[in-house]
Simulated scan of single mutants.
Amino acid sequence: MKTGTHLRQSLVLIACLITFSLFGSLAVHAQDNGTTYPDSVRSTWLWHTQLIQTQPDELLDFSASQGIDIIYLQISTKVGLDSYKSFISEASAKGIEVHALNGAPDWALSYGKPKLESFIKWVADYQGTAAPAEQFHGIQVDIEPYLLPEWKSDMNGTVRQWQENVEFLKGLAEPLDLPLSAALPFWLDNYKVPEGDQTLSTWMISRFDSVTLMSYRDNAAAIYNAAKSELLDGERLGKKVHTGVETKPSSEGDFITFYEEGSEVLNEQLAQLEQLASAHSSFGGIAVHDLVGWMDLVKRGDSL
């Protein structure tokens, strides 16, 4: 009898361990309603890099309170390395990854290659001096060449240079062994690459480990519809696609941002968006633009 009891207990223990192994290894993001979506993360951009020197605790406490998993932090040579190390270490202690962020429209043009080299060299040099808990966990670029006059005067030529620079960037970043992502507009599927029938969005998604769409709208359905084509691309290509939302005022119209609606509506729509987009295996999560604007949105709501 004792042998049988021990055998049953062992089998139960093994079953529990298998269950934990299968489900515990999945990255999940929990919503207020208790629903979880595998591999879904929350991320945000931090462009005001100097704030990691003056109010790191406020930034990280807020990020933790909002369930942020990744902060895309713009690199500024005006900020000391010790500030980066301290901020990333504190973020790591809260379970938040920090990815190195930078970019400019002319990074898409041939003459912008030295800027790509300088950025990747800075990251490589930093990683070489930082302890494991102080290191970046990824790289993101935000290039946006459609803001250049060349986009209108010679779009095919601009796209070719952009493609060349993306390949160049991949080669530079590969030795760092960090995931490489890009912020992209949601409408690149309206354009074809200069050679072939492939859409520009498909080409870009295929080249990066993941992409974050600037799918800025002020309701979940509209954001999802803006991102759906890229989510389908991601499924075919085995890549993650993150949907983006805006919290800051926009000159393009009130429908672009949650600035008018406030943080309570934002949270409601994020939950709905996650439910809609989780139908796609490519859905990587939601990115909120940006951390400072988000904090201001919540503060305005708290003051009402």
Rank of each mutant, 00 (worst) to 15 (best):
V193P: 03
E167I: 12
Q163N: 08
E150H: 11
E150T: 13
A183V: 09
N190P: 00
P194W: 07
A182Q: 04
L169A: 02
D154H: 12
N165E: 10
T158W: 07
T202E: 15
T199R: 12
P179V: 01
L176A: 05
E195V: 14
G138P: 03
E174Y: 09
G138N: 04
N190K: 15
D154P: 08
L148V: 04
Y191F: 15
G196L: 06
K152Y: 11
D154I: 06
V166E: 05
D197Q: 13
P145C: 11
Y191G: 04
P194S: 08
G157Q: 07
M204Y: 09
W151E: 10
M155F: 06
L180S: 03
K170S: 04
P194Q: 10
N156D: 15
P149L: 08
R160P: 00
Q163R: 14
L176M: 11
G171Y: 01
L169C: 00
E150N: 12
S153R: 12
D154Q: 13
E144C: 11
Y146D: 00
A173G: 06
S153I: 11
L169I: 02
K170A: 03
S153T: 15
W151H: 12
P175F: 06
P175H: 06
T202C: 03
G196I: 07
S153E: 14
P185H: 09
D189T: 11
P149T: 06
D177H: 13
G196A: 10
G171P: 01
K152P: 00
W187H: 09
Q161S: 14
V166D: 04
G196M: 06
I143G: 06
L184A: 12
E167R: 13
Y146R: 03
Y191K: 07
I139R: 00
G196Y: 07
T158E: 08
A182E: 02
Q198K: 15
P175K: 05
V159W: 09
W187L: 09
S201Y: 07
D142R: 02
L172I: 10
M204V: 14
E195W: 01
W162Q: 11
L180V: 00
L176G: 03
S181F: 00
D142Q: 08
T158G: 04
Q161H: 09
K152F: 10
L188V: 01
I139T: 03
P149Y: 09
A183F: 12
Q161P: 04
M204E: 13
E150A: 14
A173R: 01
Y146L: 04
A173Q: 05
E144L: 10
G157T: 07
A183K: 04
V159L: 14
Y191L: 14
A182L: 02
G157Y: 11
N190V: 04
L172H: 12
S181P: 00
L176R: 00
L176N: 03
D189F: 11
P149W: 08
D189N: 15
E174C: 03
S201T: 12
W162D: 05
V166I: 15
Q163K: 14
N165H: 13
Q198I: 10
L184G: 05
D142Y: 05
R160E: 12
Q140I: 02
E164T: 11
I139Q: 03
T199E: 09
N156F: 11
S153D: 14
Y191N: 05
Q161T: 11
P179E: 02
L176W: 02
